[in-house]
């Protein structure tokens, strides 16, 4: 709910919080080339909530996501996924955490070209050596509308279809939280709308937690909550956004230099 630090909450796992950062900083380089990407950020992502992170290029929104998802290590501060403190984990444990408890949707889809759609969807499960819950899998596949295309290779699918495979892949292992990095960045508006619809449905119908980085006000309009970042720190947030309200806020923050 809040982007302001709540020490008591960040130090102890709180029921209902899927992931949280506390006093998170990320600094690149040193001396003259020192760049502060994240500046003491504390933020909670609640279970069953669809959060969009927005901000101009270089505001740190991607870095925040990478750190929260265990892809990148912070310079200081802590990240928690559920009850697990990420800084205490070895690379192997961190890998297992990403595999079992986090789902990813990338801007460039990042499907394995040699695997079929179905094999891509079940890849995290296969990596864990687990058998997919067939019922759940059927439901996910049906939701993203891929039942007829499971045997196809990524090269035989359109961009929108590929991203739907990626959404299904993220959902298949029932992760605690799904991170999306500009999931509609490489899609046309219709395909993008489809993907965003699936993400919203997964939150509404399946109780999934989703965090998405985007610079598109329309995409942010699908979220339950929009957090605005500027110069490495959260500056504002709104709940139940509409594209119009998002755009207005962006204008009022004077941050209209969105480029990609």
């Amino acid at each position: 709910m809040s982007a302001t630090p709540f020490a008591s909450r960040a130090q102890h796992a709180v029921p209902g919080i899927a992931a949280a950062t506390f006093d998170l900083s990320k600094v690149y380089g040193s001396g003259d080339t020192r760049v502060v990407a994240l500046d003491h950020v504390s933020i909670d992502f609640r279970e069953g909530e669809f959060t969009a992170i927005m901000g101009p290029s270089g505001c740190g929104k991607s870095t925040l996501m990478h750190c929260a998802a265990g892809l990148d290590s912070p310079s200081s501060g802590s990240v928690r996924v559920g009850t697990t403190e990420l800084s205490t984990l070895s690379d192997r444990q961190l890998t297992a955490l990403r595999r079992d408890r986090i789902g990813f949707i990338f801007q460039a889809f990042n499907l394995l070209p040699t695997l079929t759609a179905l094999e891509n969807i079940t890849l995290p499960l296969a990596l864990a050596g687990r058998h997919p819950d067939q019922q759940w899998l059927d439901r996910v596949v049906a939701m993203v509308g891929l039942s007829q295309r499971l045997g196809h290779r990524p090269a035989q699918l359109s961009g929108g279809q590929q991203q739907r495979v990626a959404v299904a892949r993220a959902l298949a292992s029932r992760p605690a939280i799904i991170f999306g990095d500009e999931p509609t960045g490489n899609l046309d508006s219709r395909a993008g709308a489809d993907v965003l619809g699936f993400l919203r449905d997964s939150v509404r119908e399946l109780g999934q937690t989703v965090v998405m980085v985007t610079h598109d006000p329309v995409a942010a309009g699908y979220a339950d909550r929009v957090v605005f970042l500027s110069d490495g720190r959260p500056v504002d947030e709104i709940t139940h956004p509409t594209p119009g309200r998002v755009l207005d806020l962006m204008k009022s923050l004077g941050a209209l230099s969105y480029t990609s």
Partner: peptide
């Protein structure tokens, strides 16, 4: 590299 990165992100460890 990109593909291997994705595999790492999706949960394949270094030994894998």
């Amino acid at each position: 590299t990109r593909e291997i990165g994705a595999l790492r992100a999706l949960g394949m460890d270094r030994s894998g």
